[in-house]
């Protein structure tokens, strides 16, 4: 992860090779919850991207001032601040999207992608690189959400972004719109991405600790799922 330093690769690695959703397996909750409609997926993706870019930049700027021992609470406060800003913005200008996303908008705060990138990237890199990383990871997240949502909405509801598709609307498989459909499509997509990248992307066989935002708190010592990764 660390030897690819060129700015372009930082930007593009988020899209497929280190896609936060399909490869790093971060941010599962919002991925599954907001991917029933294309509009909701795009809204969620862009909201998280905005928070990610801002928090990455600020955390990177402050990385020399934040004491190591209290960095997680500091990160959380910075992230929660930006989430509140984005939430108020969407509430004011896009009220229907605000309704669709509901509680998941506030839950961007505990989205593992954002805290995970703060911990894995922004806390160690320059402001510019962190911003690029935020853009790449955010777009990767949006793209992943969009691909899952497209499948779930087109096949599950027979519509795309709310527009009916002539034939499919008569033969919709409503199961995909429900919770089990979300799990199922997500599982299949991870397998497909693994196949597409021919195992180049390090596949996670289990939930490693580093995907868990509390990794830095427990240091992977206490948790049985530890993928031994020297920090």
């Amino acid at each position: 992860m660390s030897n690819k330093n060129s700015n372009l690769s930082i930007l593009f690695k988020g899209l497929l090779l280190e896609n936060p959703v399909f490869v790093l397996i971060l941010g599962t909750c919002p991925t599954l919850a907001t991917s029933t409609t294309v509009i909701g997926a795009i809204g969620m993706g862009l909201a998280a991207t905005a928070v990610l870019i801002c928090s990455n930049m600020v955390i990177s700027m402050l990385r020399r001032f934040i004491p190591d021992t209290v960095r997680i609470p500091c990160y959380i406060v910075i992230i929660a601040g930006f989430v509140t800003v984005v939430e108020m913005f969407i509430h004011a200008y896009l009220p229907s999207l605000y309704e669709t996303l509901g509680v998941y908008l506030a839950l961007i705060t505990v989205n593992c992608i954002i805290l995970g990138r703060a911990e894995m990237f922004a806390g160690k890199n320059t402001v510019f690189k962190s911003a690029l990383d935020g853009v790449g990871m955010g777009l990767g997240f949006t793209l992943a959400l969009l691909s899952i949502a497209t499948i779930r909405e087109v096949i599950g509801a027979g519509t795309f972004a709310g527009i009916e598709i002539p034939v499919l609307v008569d033969y919709k498989i409503e199961f995909l719109q429900k919770t089990p459909g979300g799990f199922l499509i997500y599982g299949i997509m991870i397998a497909v991405v693994y196949k597409l990248t021919h195992g180049k992307a390090p596949k996670k066989t289990k939930f490693g600790c580093e995907s868990c935002p509390s990794f830095s708190v427990c240091g992977g010592v206490k948790c049985d799922n530890t993928v031994k990764e020297a920090k």
Binding site: I25, L184, G187, A191, K203, K204, T205
Partner: peptide, 8 residues
């Protein structure tokens, strides 16, 4: 293997 099977 692994996560996809778990999700399904």
């Amino acid at each position: 293997k692994g996560l996809p099977a778990t999700l399904i």
